[in-house]
């Protein structure tokens, strides 16, 4: 069953055993409790809960805003990664260091800061509401909050790949008469796509589950601006444990599938 590449290196049993124990106690058994609790429901009940209008609306909202945020990050993340890798300019080090700010900053802080920015009387919100655009308490606000918390993903997955593409390849292509767009399409896109997709998927997966930054800015209207994690909290506070866990199981399965895809993508990148 086991193929040990290197028989002289010890510790396989110890480390694998420890890894499995730790994971089991901290992650797997607790997550199993989620399934145990959900198993109290019949399949029909489970389907009825997860396909009720309110859950579907929250599902759609969570997925759409997370997708929007991941896409937006796909664009600005590519831009930032490109500029950071390819150019030397004033402030480059500063930008490079602060890209990770959303990871280091507690999400609750991000939540109140973004609400202060985008609320109708906020720094940006007042201009937006002057032209009739509502940012805070709308899906747009949620998307912007998610864009902030997931900003580092695309940049950080693209940077090393971009740095590894020898510039000569592009220059050779353009010397051979390729226009910049052609270079981009035929040289850069194929090389960057897997990493880009990984960053995109990571941002998406994180965005779907994000809670702290979003609840301050969302408005939390059932069916309109109520995200899935909040719906879990709401169900829980109505003593509807089974309903809360049913949504939890749904989200967990989605998260697992997304991660599996990401890991397969990364394996593909490595072995290419």
């Amino acid at each position: 069953m086991l193929r040990r590449t290197s028989p002289v290196i010890p510790g396989f049993g110890l480390t694998l055993g420890y890894t499995l124990c730790y994971l089991s106690f901290l992650v797997l058994i607790p997550l199993a409790a989620l399934f145990v609790k959900t198993a109290e429901l019949t399949w029909e009940q489970f389907v009825a809960i997860t396909t009720s209008a309110r859950v579907l609306a929250a599902l759609k909202l969570s997925f759409a805003t997370a997708f929007g945020a991941a896409l937006l990050n796909g664009v600005i993340g590519t831009l930032l990664a490109w500029v950071l890798v390819r150019y030397r300019f004033p402030g480059r080090k500063l930008i490079d260091a602060l890209i990770d700010l959303p990871f280091a900053l507690p999400t609750a802080v991000a939540g109140i800061a973004l609400t202060a920015l985008y609320a109708p009387n906020g720094l940006i919100g007042q201009f937006a509401s002057a032209v009739g655009l509502k940012i805070a308490y709308s899906p747009l606000g949620i998307t912007l909050a998610l864009t902030f918390v997931t900003l580092p993903f695309v940049v950080r997955t693209l940077q090393p790949v971009l740095a590894d593409i020898p510039r000569e390849v592009e220059e050779a292509a353009s010397c051979l008469g390729a226009k910049p767009l052609q270079v981009f399409r035929h040289v850069l896109v194929p090389a960057l796509l897997p990493a880009w997709l990984t960053g995109f998927a990571l941002a998406f997966a994180r965005g779907v589950g994000e809670y702290g930054s979003v609840i301050f800015i969302a408005g939390n209207m059932p069916g309109k601006t109520e995200i899935l994690p909040l719906l879990i909290m709401v169900k829980l506070d109505q003593y509807d444990y089974a309903g809360a866990t049913a949504i939890g199981v749904l989200m967990l399965v989605v998260a697992f599938i997304l991660l599996l895809l990401i890991n397969l993508l990364q394996r593909y990148i490595r072995t290419r």
Partner: peptide, 21 residues
């Protein structure tokens, strides 16, 4: 994938499971 899982599980679920236990 299992090691990564807590990373993309919604934090609310992480709390919920301990309440269930």
């Amino acid at each position: 994938t299992l090691i990564d899982l807590p990373f993309s599980v919604s934090p609310v679920i992480a709390g919920l499971v301990y309440v269930l236990l």
